[in-house]
């Protein structure tokens, strides 16, 4: 009988379910209601969703960083990582290639560079290297670059000496800008270059080169140019002949002397000095012998 009744009861679930559903109280508690309302407040919701995580993040990070050991560990880690990346074989520079320089200059450059290979390309300060190289007087310009394959390439433009400058301490080579490029022990080492001498000869190198060009007809006889009083030039020929050129327009004066020489072979005569300092009054000074020959003729006639 009992089972029959319970079976009958089960056959009408709708009524009982409804009754149960009605008995349930769906009302939220006061605090639940308030909490829901609070969570629906836009400002509060934003602060919970963004403000609170941000604050937590900053707080935890701050707490972690406030510890000295943690900061040191982080720094170590970062530098270790950086080292690991920089020391990868792709970034290593293993050898040096100097082009455009002779053997002595290349050796000088290598000794000055002070770089120990292999080295990471991150550790190479290319502008500084370039400065170091261009400080050498023999170097006019240099290009420093790291080529793929780990080669440090230095392309050097050397200074070309155009003249030999006899100075107090010896013979120096200078280029067209008047910069010394090197020294030579004797004049015979560079017989192809003209010789200049005297104080301030270096500063007038451009004028000196033009004078040498103008004097090319007597090239075989030229010994050198001497700067006199740091303002004008004397062209010294072999057997002590000297052409004294003026301060202004020395080339014109030299060309006049050359023309006289070509017309009357003036310089092959026994002349000691051709004084062109005053253009209006060129003067010749004879050697004592020639002067002696000339003098009795004039004097003897009078005598």
């Amino acid at each position: 009988m009992r089972s029959l009744i319970s079976g009958l009861r089960r056959r009408k679930p709708d009524v009982t379910a409804e009754a149960v559903a009605i008995r349930r109280d769906p009302a939220p508690t006061k605090w639940n209601y308030r909490y829901q309302r609070l969570m629906l407040t836009p400002a509060f919701r934003a602060s919970v969703r963004i403000g609170l995580p941000a604050f937590l993040l900053v707080f935890i990070a701050g707490a972690w960083f406030s510890n000295e050991a943690n900061r040191a560990a982080l720094n170590d880690k970062v530098s270790e990582l950086r080292e690991a990346v920089q020391n990868r074989p792709e970034f290593m520079v293993t050898d040096l290639a100097v082009t455009g320089a002779d053997v002595a200059l290349a050796a000088a450059i290598q000794s000055r560079l002070d770089v120990e290979f292999p080295i990471s390309s991150f550790d190479l300060e290319l502008p500084e290297l370039r400065n170091t190289i261009t400080e050498l007087t023999a170097v006019q310009d240099a290009i420093v670059r790291v080529k793929p394959g780990g080669t440090l390439e230095i392309v050097v433009t050397e200074r070309q000496p155009v003249a030999v400058w006899r100075h107090t301490d010896g013979l120096r080579l200078i280029d067209a800008e008047g910069v010394m490029t090197g020294m030579i022990p004797s004049r015979a080492d560079r017989p192809d270059l003209p010789l200049i001498a005297g104080d301030g000869a270096k500063d007038g190198i451009a004028e000196a080169l033009m004078l040498f060009a103008a004097a090319s007809p007597v090239r075989e006889r030229i010994r050198g140019l001497v700067r006199m009083g740091e303002r004008r030039w004397d062209l010294v020929l072999d057997n002590g002949q000297r052409i004294m050129l003026p301060t202004e327009a020395p080339i014109t004066a030299l060309e006049r002397v050359i023309a006289l020489d070509q017309a009357q072979e003036m310089l092959s005569r026994d002349v000691a000095i051709v004084d062109m300092r005053n253009g209006d009054r060129p003067t010749l000074r004879l050697n004592p012998m020639a002067a002696a020959i000339l003098r009795p003729t004039g004097a003897g006639g009078e005598r």
Partner: peptide, 18 residues
């Protein structure tokens, strides 16, 4: 009061606004 709370809370929840 509880019934009003129920209705208001459900409507708020649907509207997603306070």
């Amino acid at each position: 009061e509880r019934a009003i709370r129920t209705a208001v809370q459900a409507a708020q929840k649907m509207a997603n606004v306070r």
